[in-house]
Amino acid sequence: MAKVFERPKALADVVTHYCPGCTHGIIHRLVAEAIDDLGILDRTIGVAPVGCAVLAYNYFECDMQEAAHGRAPAVCTGIKRVRPEAIVFSYQGDGDLASIGAGEIVHAAARGENITVIFVNNGIYGMTGGQMAPTTLVGHKTTTSPYGRDPKLQGYPVRIAEMLATLDGPAYIERVAVYTPQLVMKAKQAIKRAFANQVEGKGFSLIEVLSTCPTNWGMAPVDALKRVANEMVPYYPLGVYKDIDAKGEDK
């Protein structure tokens, strides 16, 4: 019998701390699959964020560094500049990347650092208990926007993929989602390409993955997937925002 699907080798064989149904687990697995497919595990160095994925350094079978909140792109820059032969990636949530680390991600992208960034956007601070994120949708209730996000008080959610795509530095930026098996496969291809770009020296690649937070959204995991499709995708459209290999086809 042939294996149709098995656990990727780059994913550590441990139980994660993620809540039931949290799609961080799927995204971790896709990163590990991409690393396996490209055969780069023994030269990959990952950088974990602060947030729900803070313990990501326990979940990948490569060398890892745990960064301060938001600083993963700077840490990646430090590693990549001194070890150009290494494959360096950061795995960051929306609070980490789009709020406290907005400066670091913009400038790593602007410099065109030859790194891979996996940006997990679930529109909430999960680890700290469900506070409003820079990506929380208008009207969404969180513990710090208990009446729903009101643009007059709390401004508007940030579209990272679109924003970074305006820069000349990045090679490849795509927004994907993981709420159906078909989209999971598509996300896998995007993540794999983001790593392959680095192997080929093409420069900065970022994949924004729309994700869920069943616990802090107060939803069953299956309903949380539906919320991504019905509420997040209209504000955060899926697609390729920057691709230096497909001139004229950028959104």
Binding site: F5, E6, R7, V184
Partner: peptide, 19 residues
């Protein structure tokens, strides 16, 4: 059907599919 949809959606890599 060995479509592996279940395995692809599983956040905890619980499922293995063979054919």
């Amino acid at each position: 059907l060995a479509c592996a949809f279940c395995a692809r959606m599983c956040p905890d890599a619980v499922i293995e599919v063979e054919k």
